[in-house]
């Protein structure tokens, strides 16, 4: 197991190097360029050349790339170009990231247990009205994009009922957090409930659950002692992916509700063609994704002895 962890850790920098290269390559050869953003609609070729020289944009690809990598290795993520000119990207991220993390943490803390519970109950009483209801509601909710659900919820709860604020952010323990957390956790509940249902059904039909019942164990002990742990194993992967998608996953939600987190920053930066911010967020997202997958793999070992012992 230890050697497995070490091997996985060694892969991490390789993965990041590939990720950084792709991000940079896309920025370099993609349409548009920093001097266009800086200089606006009209500028002379001479001014453009001057800016390019100033920023080192006239250097060949590999030179620029090398400098970029060196900067990242020394944790220098550059400064914002257009949206927040002159502000270090690191400062911006440090301010925005905690908000996104709080938002996601709340959604996961709410969504995962509720989804697990609903899924497990649906599976245990499979074929019942509760089961059918859970499947219908979760498919229905999953099918509504945030882009549609957000404005509808705002219209009902903020505009018509005037119960909740229209947007903004007063911290995670404020009314402003209720709708965004509800939207994010609904997606998690729907996804987890369906997946848990499928897994628990699978395990309930397994031979070892029959063995457990043949021992005379009560249904509660069969479920908690034999079914749950086995049903959780495939969910770890999904949980890992879910965590990985978080940094960007809240892009739409944060934008709709005007929450100054990473998602909104990404949205602003893309609109303003603020290259350093876009690249930094992309790389950060990749790091989070890689780490959460690593975490998922390690957690597999905790829960499944077949992996732990290899």
């Amino acid at each position: 197991m230890l050697s497995y962890i070490v091997r996985r850790m060694l892969w991490l920098p390789v993965l990041l190097a590939i990720m950084i290269f792709i991000t940079f390559w896309l920025g370099f050869y993609g349409p548009g360029s920093p001097e266009q953003v800086l200089l606006g609609q009209r500028y002379s070729p001479e001014t453009a050349a001057l800016v390019r020289r100033q920023w080192g944009l006239d250097k060949p690809f590999w030179v620029q790339y090398g400098r970029y990598v060196l900067n990242y290795v020394s944790l220098n993520f550059g400064e914002s170009l257009t949206k927040y000119p002159g502000q270090p990207v690191a400062t911006l991220l440090a301010r925005r990231l905690p908000i996104t993390l709080q938002l996601n943490f709340a959604a996961v803390m709410l969504g995962v247990p509720v989804g697990l519970l609903f899924g497990a109950i649906a599976a245990y009483y499979h074929g019942s009205w509760f089961d059918r209801g859970i499947i219908f509601v979760s498919v229905f909710l999953r099918a509504i994009p945030t882009l549609v659900a957000g404005p509808i919820l705002l219209f009902i709860f903020a505009k018509q009922l005037k119960l909740l604020p229209v947007g903004g952010w007063d911290g995670i323990f404020s009314p402003s957090a209720i709708l965004p957390v509800a939207i994010l956790s609904t997606g998690i509940i729907a996804g987890f409930a369906r997946q848990t249902r499928a897994n628990v059904l699978d395990v309930l039909n397994s031979d070892y659950v029959r063995t457990a019942r043949a021992k005379g164990l009560s249904e509660v002990r069969v479920l908690l002692g034999h079914v749950l742990q086995n049903a959780l194993i495939p969910l770890i992967t999904i949980f890992g992916f879910m965590l990985g998608g978080m940094v960007e996953g809240t892009l739409i939600t944060e934008t709709i509700f005007g929450i100054p987190g990473m998602g909104l920053l990404a949205f602003e930066a893309i609109n303003a063609r603020d290259y350093p911010i876009v690249i930094a967020i992309t790389v950060l997202a990749a790091v989070v994704f890689a780490l959460s997958n690593l975490w998922a793999d390690l957690f597999y070992g905790v829960i499944d002895p077949r992996i732990r012992n290899t």
């Binding site: 397994s206 031979d207 070892y208 029959r210 063995t211 457990a212 002692g225 034999h226 742990q229 086995n230 194993i233 829960i303 499944d304 002895p305 077949r306």
Partner: peptide, 9 residues
């Protein structure tokens, strides 16, 4: 092969 619970000793 399948009648024992894989995650319990």
């Amino acid at each position: 092969m399948t009648s024992l619970n894989p995650v319990l000793t």
